[in-house]
Computed example of a mutant assay.
Amino acid sequence: MKLWHYALIVFLGGCCYGILSTFVKLAYLAGFTVPAVTGGQYLFGVVLTWLAVLFTKKKKLSLKQTSKLILSGIPFGLTGVFYYQALQTLNASLAIVFLFQFVWIGALLEWVFHKKKPTLIKLFSIALLLIGSILAANILFQKQMALSWIGTFWGLLAAITFSTFIFLSSSVEKATPPILKSALLSSGGLITVFIIFPPTFLFDLEILVGVIPYGLALGIFGVVLPPLLFSIGMPHVGSGLGTILTASELPVVIAMSSLVLAEPISMPQWIGVIIILGGIISSNIRSGNSNKKSLYTQNTTC
């Protein structure tokens, strides 16, 4: 596949995360608690992923490789937990802006660990994404908005763990088949969530049956698809560009809120969405040109 194919795969992984908030709101409106919704999401997602593994070609992994992938799934589980904690004391609009800081944290991780200094184009794209996120979250035009230092702390922790998960998806055990890698990453996330939110809902048949539709939807779009798509695309695009591509989450959040929940979306929010998409496109045009240039250089030196 070409580089833009892998970029599109990572972009779609970010879109999957954008779908989650709509189903979470619907689950809360139906009366389900955060532990039940979060636990159901990871439980059903992990079960579905391992079922898919049964129908794929098997590859034997050592205990060390398996352990590395399961441990790499810890940030995956922590992101949801930290983001929920942020929502306890922060307005949802502010919380998502703090979460959105993962776009520059990912570039920083790539610079520190892979020695890939961000280009001016990448920095410009990140700036566009941050400006777009502020507009899309509509925080400039809200009359009352309380800033909590505790909420800010949890929101930034969620950004750190999310960017860490993206970084690990691009660098840990690259040769592992994507579906198996996704299953092990998700299992690490499930263990983390169950440690923090003990799965008591499993022992209440009424709650367990009721949460199944939401757990399946959240499991597919939040646990099955993102790790799988990231496992396929991230090793090829890198964590720096990968974090920019996953910014597709916020435009999908806005679109789903408008189309499914019928929430009013202001013009500045739509402008923010356009700016975010512009930032994603600008980073990929530059990456595409750089990739072609490197291929041309290789061909001329051969």
Rank of each mutant, 00 (worst) to 15 (best):
Q41T: 09
Q41V: 07
Y42N: 00
L43T: 08
L43Y: 03
F44Q: 04
F44W: 11
G45A: 03
G45F: 03
L48D: 07
T49C: 04
L51R: 00
L51P: 01
L51S: 06
L51N: 03
A52I: 15
A52T: 12
V53E: 02
V53P: 00
V53G: 03
L54D: 12
F55A: 08
F55H: 13
F55Y: 11
T56G: 07
K60E: 14
S62V: 09
S62G: 12
L63R: 11
L63D: 09
L63W: 13
K64C: 10
K64Y: 14
K64N: 08
Q65N: 13
Q65I: 08
S67D: 02
S67L: 12
S67H: 09
K68N: 14
L69P: 00
L71P: 04
L71K: 10
S72M: 07
S72L: 07
G73V: 11
G73D: 11
G73C: 11
I74A: 13
I74N: 11
P75N: 04
F76E: 03
F76M: 08
G77Q: 09
G77I: 05
L78E: 02
G80C: 04
G80S: 06
F82Y: 03
F82P: 00
Y84T: 14
Q85V: 15
A86I: 04
A86K: 01
T89G: 04
A92M: 10
A92K: 04
S93V: 12
S93R: 11
S93K: 05
L94R: 02
L94Q: 05
A95N: 04
